[in-house]
């Protein structure tokens, strides 16, 4: 392909970073090269015979390239590769390991909506959405991608410092019979058994039960 003389050191640590199936290729600049290095990127579907160039990541000086669109079919697996250019010299193509979006993505914690009454708190959990091409695009919940998705919910009584743990499959949890006028802090995590994946715990949402109405 008429490549130049390729003795430039190679890009390093070429790998996918994937969150909720937003699949971004990342790499580090070749050792010992200052500014001015440009890169180009290609990718391939595993088992299919050709490499495909990514025009939006041609002659770029940043060290990442969003390939979410190209790798959105999570029934396929992918490779991606990066080549560096500087002062008429180039590096070899440096490849990722085989990337499997379904098992290799990380999942964000669920979003929480918490409300309270005098003696109960209600928690509504929402799983993050799968990456989509545009804000107007159809929203696909990760619940559809991972049918076995469950939520682990932790409820901390700030007064007694006791923490309770709930494991639920649906997305709502009502904890009744609580103490009025007491602060409770809630956080939750997503847990998938096949394949084995789990998110971190969300940040804590604290809410107080209403004070008891005087008779």
């Amino acid at each position: 392909s008429g490549e130049l003389y390729c003795s430039l050191p190679n890009p390093r640590n070429v790998h996918f970073e994937s969150i909720n199936m937003k699949n971004v290729l990342h790499w580090s600049a070749p050792e010992g090269t200052g500014d001015g290095v440009l890169y180009k990127v290609k990718y391939s579907v595993y088992g299919v015979g050709k490499w495909i160039r990514k025009p939006e990541c041609r002659n770029i000086n940043r060290t990442w390239c969003d390939l979410s669109s190209e790798t959105s079919d999570y029934e396929e697996q992918y490779y991606a590769s990066v080549k560096a250019f500087l002062n008429g010299m180039c590096s070899d193509w440096m490849e990722t390991t085989r990337f499997n979006p379904l098992t290799d993505t990380k999942i964000d914690p669920p979003m929480l909506s918490v409300s309270s009454t005098e003696k109960s708190i209600s928690i509504i959990l929402t799983a993050p959405e799968k990456w989509k091409r545009s804000p107007e695009g159809e929203a696909v919940s990760l619940l559809q991608v991972y049918p076995g998705l469950q939520y682990n919910v932790s409820v901390l009584n700030k007064k007694t410092k006791k923490r309770w743990f709930f494991s639920i499959s649906n997305n709502t949890l009502v904890v009744p019979w609580l103490e009025p006028g007491t602060a409770y802090c809630v956080s939750a995590q997503i847990y998938v058994t096949t394949p084995l994946l789990h998110s971190g715990f969300s940040k804590e949402y604290c809410i107080a039960t209403l004070k008891e109405k005087m008779a």
Partner: peptide, 14 residues
């Protein structure tokens, strides 16, 4: 059925 045992598991209200 309990799979996670990292802290006290809530069974029910009494």
């Amino acid at each position: 059925v309990v799979k996670e045992v990292s802290s006290a598991v809530h069974l029910d209200t009494m």
